[in-house]
Computed example of a mutant assay.
Amino acid sequence: MSKILIRISYKNACILKHALRDNVVEKEEWINANRDGVFNTLDSEVKELEEEQRALKAITVEIDRNKERCHM
């Protein structure tokens, strides 16, 4: 996977993290509410959710790793 270096403020990083977290929670709730429906349509949503969960974990780790430098 390619990597990109983006410099943003700590505040903006946290805003992005929280927006992604809220999106993941919303998508999890939607998928759980529609489990009784057609599973073929949920496959793409579940894959997208898994990607977003990985992204959320990665950004959380990165923010935590760099937090000390930001609060000097």
Score class of each variant (00 low, 15 high):
26 E>T: 11
22 D>M: 13
39 F>G: 08
59 I>N: 06
2 S>W: 08
22 D>P: 09
53 Q>G: 00
28 E>I: 04
6 I>R: 02
39 F>N: 13
59 I>E: 00
42 L>E: 06
1 M>P: 10
71 H>D: 13
54 R>S: 06
69 R>L: 11
54 R>Q: 04
24 V>S: 06
6 I>N: 03
35 R>E: 11
17 K>M: 05
33 A>E: 01
67 K>P: 08
18 H>E: 12
36 D>H: 12
1 M>S: 10
19 A>H: 02
32 N>D: 02
29 E>L: 09
16 L>N: 05
66 N>S: 02
52 E>V: 03
45 E>M: 10
56 L>F: 08
47 K>V: 08
2 S>P: 15
41 T>H: 15
69 R>P: 05
13 A>G: 10
5 L>C: 12
18 H>M: 15
51 E>W: 04
36 D>Y: 12
17 K>N: 07
26 E>I: 06
20 L>K: 03
23 N>W: 06
37 G>V: 02
9 S>E: 02
45 E>Y: 09
15 I>Q: 08
18 H>V: 13
53 Q>W: 02
51 E>S: 11
54 R>V: 03
58 A>P: 11
57 K>L: 03
14 C>H: 13
62 E>M: 07
24 V>N: 04
36 D>R: 10
27 K>M: 04
4 I>T: 07
41 T>P: 11
41 T>R: 15
66 N>A: 02
45 E>I: 05
19 A>K: 07
6 I>K: 00
48 E>W: 05
57 K>Y: 01
20 L>Q: 05
63 I>E: 05
45 E>K: 09
62 E>P: 01
